[in-house]
Amino acid sequence: MADKQLTEQDIVAGLAEIVEEVAGVAQDEVTKEKSFVDDLDIDSLSMVEIAVQAEDKFGVKIPDDELANLKTVGDAVAYVANNS
């Protein structure tokens, strides 16, 4: 599903869908400046589930050591944009 035309908005929207499905956070809460842990209250295991779904959705690889660096939604958006 990697798509060269993927815009930042597409990635945010795609992540928001995943975050809602995994952690029950409303999609409009998922914005770039939010911290997964501190603002969205997402635990480390949910982060793994989000990463696995993001891998399928965006055609990227997100290893656990990279995942540890993705503190905010914006970090994840940038990672997907740079690696898909």
């Binding site: 480390s44 295991l45 982060m47 793994v48 589930e49 990463a51 696995v52 656990d64 995942l67």
Partner: peptide
């Protein structure tokens, strides 16, 4: 924990 969780799921 995270690595095992990812593998198992």
């Amino acid at each position: 924990g995270q690595a095992v969780f990812r593998w198992a799921t």
